[in-house]
């Protein structure tokens, strides 16, 4: 059968019930938002990736390119988001070559929701899909089980409520690009500072009708790395070893210059 293998599903359930720790996946315990403005649409994300309660990556990229003017923000399991957006990126390109037209956002939406629905939530990708195409600017959200939503603004991830609080209190229906950009960044910052699963920087991607999409990594960087007060370099020879000639164990090949 094509697709994912569920061979070990029952075994893993059994082990989990027995109390054996299950695998920790890197998750983008995340804040992602999207917001429309008069001439286009913006998506934004924080840059923290977590493995359990540990920060796995302080500056990961959660904004994925599906097509030149169609981008996607992902929350949930990092690998699923990377793979599902990679797959959709290929399919959109093939589809647009086949039809000889620019890819549309609804095409990506339909592909993604059908793919995710087929896997009944086992692919843990929660997406905010946005972009511009010949029919205008669009903003959608897609949940891992395959349901989709339309709206002028939306947020997803563990920090979605913090971001939503900002969006609900400040959004209005005639935002300019600059206002929408500031609103998205403020919503992500609410997630960064109030949700432990989100942190570090704000990435944004602006998709304006008739313009190329513009990704800005580190649009805001409110959490610079702390400076250490001491130097932790060790003097050469500090680490003791028992075999005095470890290099004897190596095979040394001289390569002629």
């Amino acid at each position: 059968m094509a697709g994912l293998s569920f061979d070990h599903y029952k075994r893993n359930q059994h082990l989990a019930a027995k109390g054996v720790a299950t695998q920790k996946f890197t998750s983008t315990g995340t804040t992602i938002v999207g917001c429309k403005f008069d001439k286009g649409v913006i998506i934004a994300a924080d840059t923290r990736a977590t493995a359990g309660m540990i920060v796995a990556d302080k500056n990961c990229a959660k904004l994925h390119r599906l097509a030149p003017t169609i981008w996607c923000a992902g929350a949930g399991t990092a690998a699923d988001n990377d793979k599902v957006t990679e797959l959709e990126s290929s399919n959109l390109e093939l589809h647009s070559l086949w039809t000889g037209r620019a890819p549309r956002v609804v095409t990506a939406l339909t592909h993604l929701k059908q793919h995710l629905y087929k896997y009944q939530g086992h692919i843990g990708a929660h997406l905010i899909l946005a972009g511009t195409d010949p029919t205008g600017a669009h903003l959608f959200s897609i949940h891992a089980h395959g349901s989709t939503d339309v709206g002028p603004y939306m947020s997803l991830g563990s920090g979605s409520l913090a971001a939503l609080a900002v969006l609900e209190s400040k959004w209005h229906d005639s935002l300019t690009k600059e206002e929408a950009l500031a609103l998205c960044a403020e919503a992500i910052e609410a997630g960064i500072f109030n949700d432990l699963g989100s942190g570090s920087n704000v990435d944004v991607c602006v998709m304006e009708i008739g313009e190329p999409a513009r990704l800005q990594r580190g649009f805001r960087m409110p959490n610079p790395k702390s400076v250490k007060s001491r130097n932790y370099k060790f003097v050469r020879g500090t680490t003791p070893f028992f075999d005095p000639e470890p290099q004897d164990a190596m095979v040394v090949d001289e390569v002629a210059a």
Binding site: V106, L109, T110, K113, F140, S147, T148, D149, V150, G151, P152, H172, D173
Partner: peptide, 14 residues
């Protein structure tokens, strides 16, 4: 309160 955005939303995608 503002609920008027709701009238702009049609369906769930296409």
């Amino acid at each position: 309160m503002s609920w008027k955005f709701a009238s702009q939303i049609k369906g769930f995608g296409t």
